[in-house]
Amino acid sequence: MQRVNMIMAESPGLITICLLGYLLSAECTVFLDHENANKILNRPKRYNSGKLEEFVQGNLERECMEEKCSFEEAREVFENTERTTEFWKQYVDGDQCESNPCLNGGSCKDDINSYECWCPFGFEGKNCELDVTCNIKNGRCEQFCKNSADNKVVCSCTEGYRLAENQKSCEPAVPFPCGRVSVSQTSKLTRAETVFPDVDYVNSTEAETILDNITQSTQSFNDFTRVVGGEDAKPGQFPWQVVLNGKVDAFCGGSIVNEKWIVTAAHCVETGVKITVVAGEHNIEETEHTEQKRNVIRIIPHHNYNAAINKYNHDIALLELDEPLVLNSYVTPICIADKEYTNIFLKFGSGYVSGWGRVFHKGRSALVLQYLRVPLVDRATCLRSTKFTIYNNMFCAGFHEGGRDSCQGDSGGPHVTEVEGTSFLTGIISWGEECAMKGKYGIYTKVSRYVNWIKEKTKLT
């Protein structure tokens, strides 16, 4: 034993070699072989497995989906700052455009905790909710729209109204504003409101030439003092309507412009014939205590009207009353817009006519005020429907199939267009061939041609 100890002390290297040989010859039971080890760690190889990531292109799944990435790591994937920024906006807080917040056709661009709407022409605001041009839906104005110097929408209202708090709607500024039905039992019968379409306001006024200088022999019209197929109006439903009495009662109609003036057809009036105007009328054979009678003290036909040349060209006249009318729910003026808007309103496509005229061709006159909704007829169809001249200051309205029309005794009465609950004068009943005849239409004086003249002559002093 002493000898062994001496050998170990003198030859430590020998001992180490012996131990190493023993270990190498022993069977290893701690580690699995290569094949079995792979069965336990069965993990798919990654895209760049075996390579240094710093030297390969980034992978979106590896960089940002398996674990949260930084902007720089995302930049490695896209290799483009702009594309990385677009991805980053949604990656950080989701897609803010998912709810489609942009209105009126706006395009949404996502941002971090926010979004941006790219608005089409005519709109602005956070969600493109603000109209900035009158060309689109009248700028959301209830009545009139004008573009300011910086191309912003400025709404306005006709006389007797003021802008509401929203700067879009119009509200009454006087007790009985024009064009409004205020009798409670008839307010439910107000005709369907007309909503502004998209309009090209630059070209809204037709490029028409008034044929002022045409000389033409007097034409022989049949029954051209021209509501057939209409309905009984309720008291106060058309408070701007008046009836004219002269040699015979209810020979023509008219509309209240203001307390002192009536507008009617020029062919209705004769110099030297006494005319009485009755406002607030409903049943011409009954006294309903809503009527107001006034005498006409002055007749002003349009300066281009000449019955000797043509009885229905420039067929418009103004009547001055001896005493002002007292405005109330049964006696209310009709609204008159400017030339541009009167023309736009007419193009809405349908209007209402009213009167006490004959209820059928050569038949009896109506006792109760009649009204009828009539569609506008395109000019080409209008011209083809008659052998008589249709001037540019006239328009056609009615039904091709016949059966409904204005008729004798309705002449001078109103053709009105309702705009968001307020009625505007767009025409004056003038003439036609018979009444409600198939293929024939009622012919009306186009008020847009005469609004400046009306307003100039009827100013209240």
Rank of each mutant, 00 (worst) to 15 (best):
G427F: 00
K89Q: 10
I299W: 05
P239E: 00
V202L: 09
N283Y: 11
D223W: 07
E86K: 15
T461G: 05
R140H: 06
Q143F: 02
H282N: 13
D110L: 15
L321F: 00
L325W: 04
A37D: 15
L383N: 14
L369T: 12
E285T: 11
E281D: 08
V374R: 07
D405P: 13
N304L: 13
A9M: 07
V181H: 07
I275C: 03
I299E: 06
G357M: 12
E281R: 08
D249G: 11
P324C: 03
K51E: 10
C145Q: 03
P175E: 08
G230W: 13
R379Q: 15
F176I: 06
L383E: 15
Y341G: 05
R364L: 09
S70V: 08
N310T: 10
Q216F: 08
T386L: 12
E54N: 04
K387H: 12
F388N: 13
K247P: 11
P239M: 01
L367A: 11
A173K: 07
G439L: 03
K440R: 15
A380Q: 09
E171C: 05
E270P: 10
G246D: 08
D378P: 10
V263T: 02
P175T: 04
S423D: 03
W453N: 00
P301Q: 10
G357T: 14
T264R: 01
T29I: 10
V277M: 03
I454A: 01
P120Y: 07
Q90N: 13
E171R: 04
R46V: 11
T81K: 13
I316P: 00
N59R: 08
C407M: 13
Y305P: 02
I443N: 01
D410F: 06
V153K: 09
H302E: 02
I429G: 12
N127M: 15
A266L: 02
R358K: 15
P239K: 00
D338N: 07
Y312Q: 08
V4S: 14
I428H: 03
M437C: 11
N213I: 07
T381K: 06
Y371W: 14
P239C: 01
R373M: 04
R3Q: 05
E67N: 06
R46W: 04
T445F: 04
C157I: 00
S329N: 13
V263Q: 00
C128T: 03
S187A: 07
I112Q: 11
T85K: 07
N147T: 13
I210S: 12
G13P: 05
D315E: 02
A397D: 02
H282C: 04
E67G: 10
N222M: 10
N313F: 07
R384M: 12
T389Y: 07
G122S: 08
I284G: 11
G280D: 01
E259R: 06
F388D: 13
E142M: 05
L52K: 09
F348I: 10
N113K: 14
C382K: 02
Y91C: 15
V377L: 13
S169G: 08
L367M: 07
I256V: 05
D110E: 14
D338S: 04
A279M: 01
P177H: 01
G398P: 04
G413W: 15
E401A: 11
T287A: 10
L425Y: 00
W118H: 07
G272I: 09
F424C: 00
F87Q: 15
C128G: 03
G94C: 10
V368E: 11
Q143N: 01
K440V: 04
E340M: 06
S184Y: 09
Y312W: 12
V183R: 10
E129L: 03
K293T: 11
D405Y: 14
D322S: 09
I309A: 12
F123E: 13
E159F: 06
I316F: 01
L319C: 11
I429A: 11
I334V: 10
C396D: 01
F360E: 10
V248S: 10
V419H: 14
H415Y: 03
V181K: 03
E98G: 12
K362E: 13
W88C: 13
N452S: 10
R191C: 13
L103V: 09
V359Q: 13
L327A: 03
P324I: 02
